[in-house]
Amino acid sequence: MLEELVTVSTVVNGKHYRRVVEPRLLLSDFIRHDLGLTGTHVGCEHGVCGACTILVDEKPVRACLMFTPQADGHAIETVEGLAEENGELHPLQEAFRDKHGLQCGFCTPGILMTMKAFIAQHPKATEGEIREALSGNLCRCTGYQNIVEAVRLAVSRIGGSS
């Protein structure tokens, strides 16, 4: 009944994976070390910085605050899943490039995943709503101004507001 190793079956960026893991393996480490998807960054490892934010069943969550067995049967999307297979960037990524929404880039994957879900739910988001939605992701380089501008641009392109 109690297990020391657990078989996990999950879909990451549309690809099916099946692995046997220790239950204590954090989902962030599973994604980076077992699957080799190092776009998901690990900052604080206690749910404060937001760098490891991924989508689980289309909702943003902290990958460092889930154990890997909890992903069994669920669909995950990481930053690697944003761009098209031919390399064409997602409109969010495009907007971050256009507005210089990153400097060192460490926090960027978590912000992109958080904002992907946010814009889907708030296609007409105002700057105030954007700033509140960004509050769970820390950036130590930019002062947030260009991040906010990048998200506003992405909102106008994706959500179709002016």
């Binding site: 937001g50 934010t53 689980v56 943003p60 902290r62």
Partner: peptide
């Protein structure tokens, strides 16, 4: 209560 990422979980 915390941030959206936390509230989702």
């Amino acid at each position: 209560v915390a941030h959206p990422q936390i509230r989702n979980r």
